[in-house]
C-alpha cells in the first residue's frame, strides 16, 4: 500500500521521487536515490537491499531493463515486489509482481514511472501520471508532488473497498551535487500529502538562504532575522 512517482526532469536532468504510504516514515528509504546515477524504488513486500544494488548496477553503466532482469533473477520472492527504476538518461522500467496486493499496477513513460499497490483502482496510477504531467513547466519538485497529489485525488489507497489514508510521505530531488537539493519528509501525520505541500512551500522560501549559508556564510543574516523578515 504505497504509490510513487520516480522521474528524471527532462529540462534540468535532475532525478527525484515522490511517494506516500500507509507505513510510517517512508522517507527513511533514502538509499533509493543516488545523484547522477538514478532512482530505484522497491515497494510492496520490499527488500531494502534491492535499491542500493540496483543503483550500484546503474552506476556501472547498465541500463534499467538489464538491472531489473538481474534483480528478478536474484530474488526467489520477486512476485511479491513492486519496483520502478529510472536512470540518469531518463530510461524507465517498472515491475509489479503477480502476488503484490491489489489493486496494483504501474505506468511507464519516456522519463518517469508511476506505480502503486493496495490502491483503490487503476485510476490511481492514472491520477499520478496526469498529476505529474499536468504542469510540464512547473519546477520538477512540484511536478513530483502533483503526481502524488494526483494519486490521492484519484482515490489513493484502499483495502476491500475501505479507504486507507496515508500516514507518511516523502519528496527528494537530487541534482549534479553529492547531496540532495530537496529532501522533505513527513513521517507520521493525518494528512501527510497536504503536510508535504506545506513543507515544500516553506522550504522553497528557505532554499536560497540555506545555499547562502553554504556558499557565502560571511554575508548570511542570522537565521532568526531571516525568519522574522519572511
Amino acid at each position: 500500500m504505497t504509490y510513487s512517482i520516480i522521474a528524471r526532469c527532462p529540462k534540468t536532468g535532475r532525478l527525484g521521487i515522490g511517494t506516500t504510504t500507509f507505513s510510517i516514515a517512508c522517507g527513511r528509504r533514502n538509499e533509493s536515490v543516488r545523484p547522477t546515477v538514478g532512482v530505484s524504488k522497491s515497494q510492496a513486500m520490499y527488500i531494502r537491499a534491492h535499491d542500493p544494488r540496483a543503483l550500484n548496477l546503474l552506476e556501472q553503466g547498465f541500463l534499467p531493463k538489464h538491472v531489473m532482469d538481474v534483480q528478478a533473477a536474484n530474488d526467489a520472492d520477486w512476485d511479491y515486489r513492486q519496483t520502478g527504476i529510472v536512470d540518469r538518461e531518463g530510461n524507465a522500467v517498472a515491475h509489479t509482481g503477480a502476488k503484490v496486493g491489489k489493486y496494483c499496477g504501474h505506468k511507464v513513460g519516456p522519463y518517469y514511472a508511476a506505480f502503486g499497490n493496495g490502491l483503490a483502482g487503476p485510476q490511481v496510477v492514472e491520477g499520478i501520471v496526469s498529476g505529474f504531467l499536468s504542469e510540464p513547466d512547473a519546477p520538477f519538485e512540484y511536478r513530483l508532488l502533483m503526481g502524488v497529489e494526483g494519486g490521492q485525488k484519484a482515490g489513493g489507497q484502499a483495502t476491500a473497498g475501505r479507504y486507507r489514508p496515508s500516514r507518511s510521505a516523502w519528496l527528494r530531488v537530487v541534482n549534479h551535487l553529492t547531496f540532495p537539493e530537496v529532501d522533505l519528509r513527513v513521517d507520521l501525520h493525518a494528512d501527510p500529502v497536504g503536510e508535504l505541500r506545506r513543507l515544500l512551500d516553506e522550504f522553497v522560501r528557505y532554499r536560497a538562504y540555506y545555499e547562502q549559508q553554504r556558499l557565502d556564510p560571511a554575508s548570511a543574516p542570522a537565521e532568526e532575522d531571516f525568519v522574522a523578515a519572511l
Partner: peptide, 13 residues
C-alpha cells in the same frame, strides 16, 4: 551493517 540506515526518523518542521 547494511548499506541503508536501520533507524531513520525525522520531523522537518
Amino acid at each position: 551493517n547494511d548499506d541503508y540506515t536501520e533507524w531513520d526518523l525525522r520531523v522537518d518542521q
